[in-house]
Design a binder for these strands. Structure first.
Lengths: 227, 227
DNA sequence: TCTCTAAGTTAACTAATTATTAAATAATTA
DNA sequence: TAATTATTTAATAATTAGTTAACTTAGAGA
């Protein structure tokens, strides 16, 4: 998917910021839409169904938070990516922002390179069909990615980084067999070289902590998560 | 409400800038007041209770930041809109300015059209009574963001700037893990480069002051606030 | 059933990350 | 300017995570 296939809606009341941001996004060949206030933003969003909306928190009439709330209320816009722009000192806005479902917070002053890389990071989320919801549920097992906690019934299970990543990977498609090779690539990364037993050990830990029969070995192939 | 009902106080030590700004504001029919230094500004502000004060950051004797602080300390002036004028946009004074409660930052050189639209945007905020918040509560912990004070039961805990910001960030979404990277970005900003241990030290201070078990370490990932 | 290979199990080992200090800078205030 | 307070760093301790190695077990196919 090339950048130009992504529609990004910029919302700010200040012309110079709009210009600055859209210039930088266009340079990267994104498709840029613009709105100068909340009302306009909602209209454009409804009509154009952008992939990502960049909203200034401070705007006259209808501020970013409110605009966000209304956009999220539109049918089909629940999962649109929304990033807020705010001055760092206005950190009070963060609270409201997170409640409304901000996907990112970008602080002013904005540096082009940082801005672009944040935008790209957000859009990457769309592709790697990382489900928007940060929690996964399987029977009485719940994985809260944001909190980095696994719940089994009432119990909170705390997994260290690699175990957590491994679990998230396997559970991302229950029933599917993940090859050792693929697991290594996803959890450990290409650069890292670890022995074969390492995966076993991690699987073992998961079996201990989560439950033996959630993790099935397919000999000669790999592992899968079942529930 | 027509423009003439808005009183705007301009504070700058340079005559030509004062003249230039007031000319443009008067053309829009705003009521313009003028002061040439901080002391005068405070007097006029007290007497006239303007809606908006435009303050040059760089002035002899008492600079804009200091003047702002004193004006905000006057009774009934806590919520007056204050916009700073300064030469460079990347100036470190921006940060100081926002700390003191700047509502906007206008950088020189000033273009009439931009200036006017910024002023109007600010004043529009007066009408759309966006209340500046607020306090957050978690159990017996209360964060008063306006006063910059944290209460734990009866005790007032005074946190320095960075610690306060860090606390506000973490508490903005209890339970959520904030990565070190994100924390750096939000609390310290993109420009500033500080070592990783700096975060640890600040977390430690918070643990000391607020309570050990409110702050949880997720090794390899980040920190979270829990209550 | 035997054999061969992949996977499981441990505990020791190693590496990585965070915690804790105290001391050095920097910023603010008096 | 001195004094105070805040912030950052640097060194090192502590802790936790991750890996390996040696060995055991299990299972598919001859």
């Amino acid at each position: 998917m090339s950048n130009s296939e992504f529609k990004i809606l910029l919302v700010d009341d200040e012309d110079d910021i709009l210009e600055f941001l859209s210039y930088n996004l266009r340079k990267e060949e994104f498709t840029v839409l613009i709105a100068q206030n909340g009302k306009q933003a909602i209209e454009v969003a409804k009509r154009e169904q952008p992939h990502l909306i960049v909203l200034d928190v401070m705007m006259p009439d209808m501020d970013g938070i409110e605009t966000c709330r209304e956009i999220r209320a539109l049918s089909g816009m629940k999962d649109v990516l929304i990033a807020f722009l705010s001055a760092r000192s206005e950190d009070y806005t963060q609270i409201a922002g997170f409640e409304v479902g901000a996907d990112d917070y970008i602080t002013k002053p904005i540096k082009p390179r940082v801005f672009i890389s944040r935008i790209k990071a957000l859009l990457r989320r769309l592709q790697s069909n990382t489900p928007k919801s940060e929690t996964l549920e399987f029977g009485n097992i719940r994985i809260d990615k944001e909190k980095h906690i696994v719940y089994k019934g009432q119990d909170e299970i705390n997994l260290p980084k690699k175990e957590f990543r491994l679990f998230v990977l396997l559970s991302s498609k229950p029933g599917k067999v993940f090859t050792r090779e693929y697991i290594l690539e996803q959890v450990w990364g290409d650069e890292v070289i670890v022995g074969d037993r390492t995966i076993d050990v991690h699987i073992r830990k998961l079996r201990e902590k989560i439950g033996d029969d959630y993790f099935k070995t397919i000999k000669g192939v790999g592992y899968k998560f079942e529930f």
